[in-house]
Design a protein around this nucleic acid. Structure first.
Length: 490
DNA sequence: TGAAATGTTGGGGCG
DNA sequence: ACGCCCCAACATTTC
């Protein structure tokens, strides 16, 4: 009889059945499974609003996927340990399986959770999760963490041989607990004004959608990835980021499937390498966050830690609302608001604009992205903001300041991306669209554009902003600056 | 995963 | 024919 006592499969950031080591290990116990998701809002960093929307639908999808295997997802709200303890008392469950999490506050919380569970006489098993390599598996020759992307990337690539993904189970012997709660109790959807109304036309959360999107990317898109990925109006990227973030698809499976197609010649080496390296940027961010936990809210490079950020609430709001007067910036910020997503090239442009043109603290931009992105990832978001601001590891040099007009001309040459989100400029001659202020009064009038009314004047002048950023940033290198010391990372 | 300033080159107009 | 100038195109340097 003892061998019929159940075990708990605790789903967290791994809402999938394919290549889920936690699930595979739990099934190998041979016991009935209690598939469990606990919505526990404790801890310093809570999921952002857009991601809560995604989570809601992802949990429904996971529940359906489990049901088709003869099982179901038990949902709970509250303190993780208390809930596990009460389920253990009720069912006699003997083990808890989970996928490891890697953000410092999660590592800490999981250590405490594991201790408490073990002390209550239940064993725990934490499994590899979310990453291709564990953060401590990729180290320099002197066993230290990497600080520069390229050597990290080479090292990972040389030491990883495309693990075969674990197949999804056909059948799961699961236990559904009677007091299972309804997903609405989790209260994940927007209250009041429904800003997520448009999300459904862009996104379908869940493992099934993630897998079919990935397959179609491999079949139709990936060969153009290297050449087209910087053009926001071209459908060249995989769009997998929110699925990856929620753990609906595993990065190990992604790279394994892509490698198979490289082997059989259906995708080019160039496409494979570029796509692989972008996945490894995600790994690199986790690597840094794991080894340098303070980067969560502190600049990796010490000389930036007392940077004279300008506190301009008005400019921050205009940036958030897509009302800066720079069409490519505004297009990006409006795409973000309406879809929960922004093309990567445009993320760099808007982030450079906030931190360098406006000199606004990168943490404020990071927080806005955290709340509005469906793919908000604690490591990628944090480290990418630091990268753009220039204060991160292997960061963009301080003098790399994007010119929003040149970026638009280069990466959105036919203005299609801008016009999708800033349609009020659609009647302007195309040469003026990235910089409407250069059009004459007569041209503006004919295009029904009234600067300051139908579309804003630029909130800051490019040359002024660029010169100010250069002098502010370069002052950090001044020997008299007390923060210009040897790098210390603690 | 920059942009702008500065430097160099070479073709063509012109005296 | 030749030198001179202009300037676009490209390359290099600087921020």
């Amino acid at each position: 009889m003892t061998n019929q006592l159940p075990v708990i499969a605790l789903f967290r950031e791994d809402l999938r059945l394919t290549d889920n080591l936690m699930l595979t290990n739990a099934l190998q116990s041979g016991r009935p499974l209690i598939c469990l998701y606990i919505h526990d809002d404790a801890g310093p960093i809570k999921r952002g609003s857009a991601q809560r929307w995604w989570l809601h639908h992802s949990l429904l999808a996971l529940n359906n996927d489990l049901k088709s295997r003869g099982c179901s997802l038990n949902l709970r709200v509250g303190d993780t340990f208390s809930i596990i303890r009460s389920i253990v008392l009720q069912t006699g469950a003997t083990e808890v399986y989970w996928s490891r999490r890697y953000a410092p506050y999660q590592v800490e919380a999981d250590k405490i959770l594991m201790d408490k569970i073990k002390k209550s006489g239940v064993s725990t098993k934490s499994c590899k999760g979310r990453l291709i390599k564990q953060p401590w598996e990729v180290l320099t020759a002197s066993a230290r963490p990497y600080r520069v992307f390229t050597p990290f990337w080479k090292s990972l690539r040389n030491n990883y041989n495309f693990e075969t993904p674990l197949p999804p189970p056909n059948q799961i012997n699961g236990l559904t607990l009677s007091e299972n709660c309804c997903i609405d109790i989790l209260s994940l959807l927007p209250k009041g004004f429904d800003w997520s109304a448009g999300f459904h036309s862009y996104w379908q959360p869940g493992e099934g959608a993630a897998q079919s999107k990935f397959t179609s990317f491999l079949e139709n898109g990936i060969n153009d990835y290297a050449s087209d990925r910087d053009f926001p109006n071209r459908p060249a990227t995989s769009q997998l980021s929110p699925h990856l973030q929620m753990g609906e698809i595993s990065p190990r499976q992604i790279i394994y499937d892509a490698a198979k197609r490289l082997e059989n010649g259906t995708i080019s080496a160039e496409a494979f390498d570029k796509f692989y390296s972008e996945l490894v940027w995600r790994e690199f961010s986790y690597h840094l966050l794991y080894h340098f936990p303070k980067v969560l809210d502190q600049e990796f490079l010490p000389k930036f830690r007392h940077f004279p950020w300008q506190h301009n609430k008005n400019f921050l709001t205009l940036w958030q609302q897509g009302q800066t007067g720079y069409p490519i910036v505004d297009a990006g910020m409006r795409e973000l608001w309406h879809t929960g997503y922004m093309h990567n090239r445009v993320r760099m442009i808007v982030a450079s604009f906030l931190t360098k043109h406006l000199l606004i603290d990168w943490r404020l931009g990071m927080q806005w992205f955290w709340d509005t992105l469906v793919d908000a990832d604690i490591a990628s978001n944090t480290l990418s903001w630091q990268w753009v601001a220039g204060c991160g590891a292997d960061a963009a040099p301080y003098f790399r300041i994007f010119n929003p007009v040149l970026q638009a001309r280069k990466f959105d040459p036919d203005n299609q991306y801008i016009l999708r989100w800033v349609p009020e400029l659609s009647q302007l001659p195309s040469k003026h669209i990235p910089e409407p202020w250069t059009a004459s009064a007569e041209v503006l009038r004919q295009a029904n554009v009234c600067l300051g009314s139908t579309y804003p004047h630029p909130i800051i002048e490019h040359k002024f902003a660029r010169d100010r950023a250069l002098s502010t940033y370069s002052s950090l290198n001044d020997i008299s600056n007390p923060n210009n010391g040897v790098y210390k990372h603690n």
